[in-house]
């Protein structure tokens, strides 16, 4: 490897729980994501903010291959996937999904299964856990998200906030190394959203590595270590939360924050 002047390290030498480099996605000629880079340490929390259509969700969904990126590399918790060319083999995709857990805007619990079954089925099918082991894990997690008495309910019987907490428990049951949150409170009214944010805050305090696409500016500032601002399919800026919120460097960021905070 040839080193140029200065202290700039080549991307391959970066280490971290999450190393995303040069990630991009195009549909034919239209480019929806370009050259997104993100390196995170274990236990770090990064919030992604920005206007609609900025590519925030697309970026997040590329990280576990719900969307297929067309260029770049993704390394998460020991899984490594190179985009572009032929589709990555099944083993590395499985690995990538094993180390990531995802929480969706619309919860996406399985409506035909009880809360307990929602949390135990993936453990049994993916980890090969026994019924007893899976239930033990589920009970612990239900306690942790504050819903120990809902195990036998069907999701439709629960409020949105409760469903989202169950969805978090379901993802945690597979012991992911990194949790991906895709606007987890956007479908909830502000008050109910708080109970979900509280669970996420606890999770962050316990040292979970988290990437959170959100419109909750307080959460972004108070809970995350860094904020990444996206616009137009790329990264506008990324930095310590306090700094991005109070002294944004990018003009487009200033504009966006003004619109959000002056509301």
């Amino acid at each position: 490897m040839v080193f140029s002047f200065g202290t700039r390290t080549p991307p391959t030498a970066l280490t971290g729980e999450v190393v995303v480099s040069g990630l991009g996605k195009s549909y034919g000629a239209s480019r929806v994501l370009s050259d997104v880079n993100l390196t995170m340490n274990e236990g770090e929390v990064v919030s992604i903010i920005g206007p609609s259509g900025a590519g925030k969700s697309t970026f997040l969904r590329c990280l576990n291959y719900l969307e297929t990126p067309t260029e770049g590399t993704i390394e998460i918790g020991g899984a490594r996937v190179v985009a572009g060319g032929k589709r990555p083999d099944k083993a590395s995709l499985d690995h990538l999904r094993r180390v990531t857990g995802m929480v969706f805007q619309s919860f996406n619990l399985f409506p035909h299964l009880t809360v307990m079954e929602n949390i135990t089925l993936p453990q049994r099918k993916v980890l090969g856990a026994s019924k007893e082991e899976a239930q033990e894990v589920a009970n612990k997690l239900l306690k942790r998200v504050g819903l120990p008495d809902k195990a036998e309910q069907y999701p439709a019987r629960l409020s949105g906030g409760q469903q989202q907490r169950i969805a978090i428990a379901r993802a945690l049951a597979l012991s992911p190394k990194v949790m991906l949150f895709d606007e987890p409170t956007s479908a909830l009214d502000p008050e109910i959203g708080l109970e979900v944010l509280a669970v996420m805050r606890d999770l962050a305090d316990e040292g979970m590595t988290m990437i959170v696409v959100t419109h909750e500016m307080h959460f972004a500032r108070d809970v995350s270590d860094r904020i990444m601002v996206m616009g137009n399919g790329g990264v506008l800026e990324i930095g310590p939360s306090e700094q991005v919120m109070s002294q944004p460097q990018n003009e487009r960021t200033r504009q966006f924050l003004k619109a959000v905070l002056d509301r």
Binding site: L66, G101, M102, F104, K125, V126
Partner: peptide, 20 residues
Amino acid sequence: AQREAAHALGLSPVATVGHI
């Protein structure tokens, strides 16, 4: 979204079709 949730959890295609 149901398929996506199953994929994100790492369920195999067979398990996704059969159980979800």
